[in-house]
Simulated scan of single mutants.
Amino acid sequence: MMKQQITTFLTFQNNNAEEAMNFYIDLFDNSKVIEIHRYGKDGPGKEGTVEKALFELNGKQFICSDSFIQHEWTFTPAVSNWVECENDKEIEQLFKRLSENGDVKMPLDNYGFSKQFAFVEDRFGVSWQLNLE
């Protein structure tokens, strides 16, 4: 497999990188874990948590990690994942699952630039823009 030059990297600070990764893989077709490396008993992160995981969401590669350093920052809605949906059923399902225990920035609606659009921050703090042309 050829390496991609630019890959989105998600830094989790609550030891929930694997939970988030598995949630996303379950949500999108053509998705899988490619490889996962865990922190060992000698650290620096909590044993068994994700040091670095490479995964695909509908064929696009992502990397995630459980940070052993508690940063002053976290995810921001200023950077989000744009998802082109194929039909009403898909956008409605994604909206429902991603907004569950999350924060709806813009509810699913027609905003003029799109037939259906929503902006959601999921329960892990990652932002998603869902679009149906």
Rank of each mutant, 00 (worst) to 15 (best):
N110A: 01
F113H: 13
L57P: 01
Q4T: 10
F117Y: 14
R97A: 04
F113R: 03
V33I: 14
C64L: 08
E56V: 02
G112T: 03
P107K: 05
E47A: 10
K52H: 15
I69W: 13
Y24F: 07
A17P: 00
E86S: 13
K32G: 02
F119T: 07
Q70D: 10
V104M: 06
Y39T: 02
H71R: 12
L98K: 02
W73Y: 12
F117K: 00
N58E: 14
L98N: 08
S127K: 02
Q5S: 07
P77M: 15
V120I: 13
G59I: 11
L54G: 03
G102K: 05
T76G: 03
L57H: 08
L108A: 10
Q93K: 13
S80G: 01
L98H: 07
L98V: 02
S31E: 06
R97E: 15
N30G: 01
V50L: 13
G40M: 14
S99H: 06
L98C: 14
K60Q: 12
N81E: 03
N81Y: 08
E133C: 05
E90S: 01
V83P: 04
H37E: 06
K52G: 08
D103C: 12
V120N: 04
M1R: 09
K60V: 15
L27H: 07
N81G: 09
D29H: 11
E72C: 15
E19S: 04
T76E: 03
K89A: 14
L10V: 00
I69L: 15
Q5Y: 08
C64M: 09
E51A: 15
I63C: 06
D88W: 04
Y111P: 12
N58I: 13
Q13E: 10
E18C: 03
N110T: 05
R123P: 09
L54W: 11
K115V: 04
K115T: 05
L130A: 03
P77A: 14
H37A: 02
V33G: 03
L98P: 10
P107M: 10
I34Q: 09
V79S: 11
I91F: 02
S31Y: 08
R38A: 11
K3H: 03
T8Q: 09
T8F: 09
G112H: 11
N58C: 13
H37R: 07
N131L: 03
G125H: 08
G102P: 08
M1Q: 10
Q70F: 02
F113M: 12
V104D: 03
P44F: 13
H37Q: 08
F9R: 09
E35A: 10
L132V: 07
K52E: 06
Q61F: 11
E86Y: 05
F124Y: 15
E19W: 02
N58Q: 15
K52N: 15
L27K: 04
S127I: 00
E100W: 11
E35T: 05
V79D: 00
Q13R: 00
T49S: 14
R38P: 02
D66A: 04
S31K: 15
G45R: 01
D103M: 13
K52I: 05
F68Y: 14
N22W: 07
F23G: 00
V126Q: 06
V50H: 01
K105I: 14
D26T: 05
E35Q: 09
Y24R: 07
M106Q: 08
I6C: 12
M21S: 06
N131E: 04
Q129K: 06
K115F: 02
D66M: 03
E92D: 13
F12S: 00
